[in-house]
Nucleic acid binder design. Structure first.
Length: 969
RNA sequence: GCCGAAGUGGUGGAAUUGGUAGACACGCUGGACUCAAAAUCCAGUGCUAGCAAUAGUGUGCGGGUUCGAGUCCCGCCUUCGGUACCA
């Protein structure tokens, strides 16, 4: 009887669907446990072997919890709105809904292949109108609430309107972007449009003109976390700052709670640190400076108010509102030129030249409130419009950037902190004694800050303030494939929320998905749709990718409800996610937005918990090996080809190299070379089969590689282009560099799980992925070790069979057999609990090796082991479970109970060390006293050798562990 | 620069609280079975010396604490991830 996974697996795959084995109820006597995977975006490339890593871990944990008697919610769905489907539609005309559904079908097949225990009756798809109805509904809630700082929660906007009518906006403490104050009568006198504008400054979902990340290539704006190093995260297109009217989410209102509640979560410190960093809380002072000849004051934010006597100039962001008013006639032209210059620079330019300081004097002066000194006001790129107040007091003595700026423009530098007592301290350490600072002289920095804050407040020139790096999230996208806003504008441009009974507001049908002109979404082309409500025009932007994913975990609780996003009963039963598994790439985006939405829904009383994800595990990435060779190219405009160069110690005759076919890619010049030629990294997909042990590729091997594989990947076969080196035998070769990199279609390194499953079975694939290493660690995919797991499964299978067939005996197991089983139960259980799945697999291997050695075929042992293994290898265990005579699924069995008495040992193997070095091992009764152990140890020949004739100073006996003898010459 | 994680055989990795470093696998070497191969099984395998017993040495580097350090402390180096004119 041989193990044939393909037959077993297809049989049970079907059976589990037919019997609805994994369907979960929203009520049970059992304790709930909610295990969630970050749902995938269904891309055209399908799943690669990296995706299932986290899914397998969470599946094992779900199955384990179920065996342990929990009612486990373990759902899956699709984050189905997004840019790739739309880009594909633009290129091919295939409707995003069609391509998305095709991709989903493919994903589903791949997922089913691996044998996950998802309750598919709860599947969600964010692009389904029945789903995004509730995304729109939550948006409307955000729109119709503001954040009240007194009660520290979201409150209905109607409440705010009532307060405005009574007191204006002076008394209300709310998160807002309203710059002016008004009285009750001001409010009553306002037009509908004016009132709308004011309310927008308070709503949690609001519309505002601001500088946004505009991506020309994608034709849309992007959120901060969708931009990496000045390029779009998806597609890698350049991004620039542009002023646009956009919807935003006032996530900053929740900054403090998002920060503080991190403490309640079981997340890795690394991830918490990333979130704290992103929120970027800093305490300091908001201060007002008078401006010479103007009524207006200049507002700045500083964390170091103590250094004000060293503030020798002010710097404003070039976009600062006050600039036109304070610029003097003399400086008008210079300022205008500078602003033009700044505007012409892309984000990428700015980032590339961080060290370059630019700026211009406005001609205006501020007054230092403490000594009345005139301080020149400058503009500088290094001050950002949307952090703090967009204005700083510059203290060049104690701030690196201010110093560079001051030196460049010849501005005064006054030392105000004496750090001589603290060598190596920087301004961030806030150490030193104040000097040149009037009443602060001689005071330690930390005390000076406190004293200054008090002074500022008592003198009424400022106040303590907390600032956050976190910005409000941009919520508009000029795209088709996203949730439409349930918002329409009247002829005056006043926004009106659609009635809830109009939801879902479905996307219009379109033929052409090209962005419309003027930075508008393609949706704007569907004029009938836009104007479907008389007198109103619908918003044509759509919501961003993170909208649907910010609350999907709640929808799984009650996925088909059409009366609410989920019923109260379901939410009260499931509460929150107990275990969330996913990649670090969502550390600040998705995880921040979800937490914010959850807190908002908590404020409104829709969810009972303050945080959505109690425990979070970040699975590492499965990377692939990439094979690169150094490839010579000629720098553009290089005058001479007839030169020799030294590369890696070898003389290279440049003229031989075929220059025309070389790639120019702006790489930094390597090693000894300058100016003329450079080295590029050139990919050789799947070349590994042709390498010798030292990663050498000989000329013969290269030609073979090229003929057999390389020709399919546009490999350059002009031999002269490669850097060939001669070995001692005169054979030419080059060394291939092997790197670990992300799997992607463009790198030709994608490993498809289906192929592995087809060859080895899903059980083997699952266990092998777990066996690769710790779940949180990134590691390269390599099928080298898969045979080990495959052998294990066959060996396991063979425990149940002899040559003649089924061979399980009812005989009572021996003590040794019980001990092996219970050691394994203990180890596996503890390791699952700490998410150490790789060591679980090795524990199973040891167990099976031992049982095989004893030729154990006792039913009692094998039955228990089979249940223990079921979460890891659900198919083989289900088959054997049936053959063991059970008529219910092994996945409904109960978890074997660990019995410590089986592990009690009569003897312990004691290592005997002399001065910490192991010299012997002795088996001793576990009942011996330390004194007896010591006496026996000293009689051992191997020990005597090292102890006799020396001074025995000390004996350490750690009961059950080891013995150490300390001797001196 | 700052924040975070990590460096262990030829390879993936184990060692959970300071207590036998290298579990479990892969690979490799030798052997059995076979006409042969695959599969399977057995033995060996950190490095150095030795036929061997054995000895020395060994967890990125340099110090320290300790009877005892991969694990704790101090100072470095390297790699990976995040982040950056954040006032």
């Amino acid at each position: 009887m041989h193990y044939h996974p393909e037959n077993i697996e297809s049989k049970w795959r079907k059976n589990w669907v037919d019997t609805q084995l994994y369907k979960v109820d929203n009520s049970s006597d059992k304790q709930k446990f909610y295990v969630l995977d970050m749902f995938p975006y269904p891309s055209g490339a399908g799943l690669h072997v990296g995706h299932p890593l986290g899914y397998i871990a969470s599946d094992i944990f779900s199955r384990y919890k179920r065996l342990k008697g929990f009612n486990v919610l373990h759902p899956m769905g699709y984050d189905a709105f997004g840019l790739p489907a739309e880009q594909y539609a633009i290129q091919t005309g295939v409707h995003p809904a069609v391509s998305t559904d095709e991709n989903i079908k493919r994903y589903r097949e791949q997922l089913d292949n691996i044998g996950f225990c998802y309750d598919w009756s709860r599947e969600v798809k964010t692009s389904a109108p029945s789903y995004y109805k509730w995304t729109q509904w939550i948006f409307l809630q955000l729109y119709s609430h503001y954040y009240d700082l007194t009660s520290d929660k979201a409150m209905p906007i109607d409440h705010l309107i009532a307060v405005f009518a009574q007191d204006g906006n002076k008394t209300i403490k709310a998160a807002n972007s309203q710059e002016s104050t008004f009285t009750a009568s001001d409010w009553q006198g306002m037009s509908a449009k004016q009132k709308d504008d004011v309310l927008m400054n308070y709503r949690l979902a609001y519309r505002k003109t601001g500088y946004v990340n505009w991506c020309e290539a994608l034709g849309t704006v992007l959120a901060n976390d969708e931009v990496k190093d000045g390029f779009s995260e998806r597609g890698g297109h350049p991004v620039e700052k542009k002023a646009m009217m956009q919807w935003s989410l006032r996530i900053t209102a929740y900054a403090e709670r998002l920060l503080n509640d991190l403490d309640t979560l079981e997340w890795s410190d690394a991830l918490k640190a990333m979130q704290r960093n992103w929120i970027g809380r800093s305490e300091g002072a908001q201060m007002f400076f008078d401006i010479v000849g103007h009524d207006q004051k200049l507002e700045i934010f500083t964390t170091r108010p103590d250094t004000i006597f060293g503030a020798t100039y002010m710097v404003l962001a070039p976009e600062h509102d006050i600039v036109p008013q304070i610029t003097t006639n003399d400086q008008k032209e210079a300022v205008a030129n500078y602003i033009d210059y700044v505007g012409s620079r892309s984000e990428v330019d700015r980032m590339a030249e961080v060290k370059e300081v630019t700026g211009v004097f406005t001609g205006a002066y501020a007054i230092n409130p403490f000594n009345g000194k005139k301080i020149p006001i400058w503009l500088g790129e290094y001050v950002l419009k949307d952090y703090g107040t967009g204005a700083i007091m510059a203290v060049p003595s104690d701030d690196e950037r201010d110093q560079v700026f001051a030196k460049k423009f010849g501005l005064e530098i006054i030392d105000v902190v004496d750090k001589s007592d603290y060598p190596g301290a920087t301004l961030h350490d806030k150490l030193g004694k104040m000097v040149n600072s009037d009443f602060l002289n001689g005071i330690e920095v930390k005390d000076a800050i406190k004293a200054m804050l008090t002074k500022i407040e008592t003198q009424g020139i400022g106040s303590r303030k907390v600032n956050y790096k976190l910005r409000d999230a941009n919520y508009s996208r000029q795209r088709y494939w996203g949730e439409p806003f349930p918002i329409a504008y009247d002829s005056e441009g006043v926004a009106h929320a659609l009635d809830v009974d109009k939801l879902p507001l479905e996307l219009p049908e379109l033929e052409n998905f090209q962005p419309a002109s003027g930075g508008k979404s393609p949706v704007a082309r569907a004029e009938d749709w836009v104007n479907q409500f008389p007198g109103l025009a619908l918003e044509t932007d759509t919501m961003p990718g993170f909208a649907g994913s910010s609350w999907y975990f709640l929808r799984y609780m009650d996925a088909v409800n059409d009366q609410a996003f989920a019923s109260k009963e379901a939410i009260n039963y499931w509460q929150d996610v107990d275990l969330y598994v996913g990649g670090t790439e969502h550390a600040v985006g998705h995880l921040m937005y979800s937490r914010c939405w959850h807190k908002f829904l908590y404020d409104l009383g829709y969810v009972p918990t303050i945080e959505p994800f109690k425990k979070l595990i970040n699975q590492g990435m499965i990377t692939a090996y990439g094979y690169y060779v150094d490839f010579i190219y000629l720098e553009k405009n290089s005058p001479s080809l007839n030169e020799k160069a030294t590369i890696y110690g070898n003389q290279i005759d440049i003229i031989k190299h075929n220059v025309t076919s070389c790639i120019k890619h702006g790489f930094p010049l390597p090693l000894e070379l300058t100016g003329k030629i450079g080295i590029n990294q050139y990919r050789l997909p799947y070349v590994n089969e042709y390498l010798d042990g030292n990663n050498k590729l000989t000329k013969d091997a290269f030609l073979k590689y090229y003929d057999e594989i390389g020709v399919n990947y546009n490999i350059n076969n002009h031999l002269d282009n490669y850097i060939w080196v001669k070995d001692e035998n005169g054979e030419e070769y080059f060394t291939v560099n092997i790197v670990q990199e992300k799997m992607s279609k463009s790198k030709y390194n994608v490993q498809n799980p289906d192929e592995v499953v087809a060859k080895y079975g899903a059980d083997c694939f699952r266990m092998y992925e777990m066996f690769l290493g710790p779940i949180e660690q990134s590691k390269p995919w390599d099928t080298k070790g898969i045979d080990g797991v495959n052998r294990f499964l066959r060996k396991y299978w063979s425990l149940f069979f002899s040559e003649n067939g089924w061979n399980v005996s009812q005989v009572q197991p021996t003590a040794e057999e019980y001990k092996i089983l219970h050691t394994t139960i203990k180890k596996v259980t503890e390791d699952i609990e700490r998410f150490s799945f790789n060591t679980c697999v090795s524990a199973f291997m040891m167990c099976v090796n031992e049982l095989k050695r004893l030729e154990c075929n006792k039913k009692e042992i094998l039955s228990a082991l089979n249940v223990l293994l079921a979460p890891f290898a659900p198919f083989i265990t289900e088959e054997l479970n049936m053959m063991l005579g059970n008529d219910t699924s092994v996945h409904k069995a109960s978890y074997p109970i660990f019995e410590p008495s089986y592990l009690v040992q009569d003897t312990v193997d004691y290592p005997v060390c002399v001065n910490g070095k192991k010299r012997d091992i002795v088996a001793l009764s576990s009942k011996l006293t330390p004194k007896e152990i010591q006496d026996i140890a000293l009689t051992l020949d191997n020990v005597k050798k090292y102890v006799d004739g020396k001074d025995l100073q000390r004996v350490i006996v750690v009961p059950g562990k080891m013995i150490n003898l300390v001797v001196k010459e």
